[in-house]
Amino acid sequence: MSSDVCVIVPVFNEATVVGAVVAGLLEVFPHVVCVDDGSTDGSADVARSAGAIVLHHPINLGQGAALQTGFDYVLRYTSATYCVTFDADGQHRIEDAARMVDKARNTGADVVLASRFLGTTKNMPMLRRLMVRGGVWFTRRTAHIDVSDTHNGLRVLTRPALQRIRLKMPRMAHASELLNAITHNGLSYVEEPVDIIYTEYSLAKGQSMMNSVNIVFDLAAERLRFAR
């Protein structure tokens, strides 16, 4: 029943965890595509032997670019109606993804966004909470979108949404860029409460404070270009 779903997992040096994530996803979704963003630790082989289709960036381009490669793959080579984006570090729960796909089917929304703040996320450290809240505040102000969580890697995008979204930003600003694209193209969206599993691994791999400075700068520059 999930054969019209394609799961995109951007991967960058996640060899120790990506295998389990792919195996878990394949139990529910038959079509899992890992976009290996120039990993140097054999992540691609791990993902491939776990049963995923692996697209390989010859050099590291950043997560936004990896997602866009996945989107292009879905549009070009599959007939999937729903595209799920799922982080490789094991912080998302597969049942949340499945529920979000159902929600997309039932509501007919173009995009389903996951929100950890509507859910009962555990073990979220104080500093991280402040940082993510800051990101939410900033994005709500700039993208004019009323969502409770803006930097969650778990999303469901329908084919029409993929056709209209084109991520151009390098690095990590794509989360906000994607939300901008939703409002800009008049796509409909709903939120679904989810849990994030914070482990030592996912926290270490997560975004640092300093990088939020980069994100704000990238977005500000892009926004001014847009406004011109």
Binding site: I53, H56, T69
Partner: peptide, 11 residues
């Protein structure tokens, strides 16, 4: 360019 490479490869 890199994206195109990745997609060709997949094809």
């Amino acid at each position: 360019l890199a994206r195109e490479l990745a997609l060709r490869d997949a094809e």
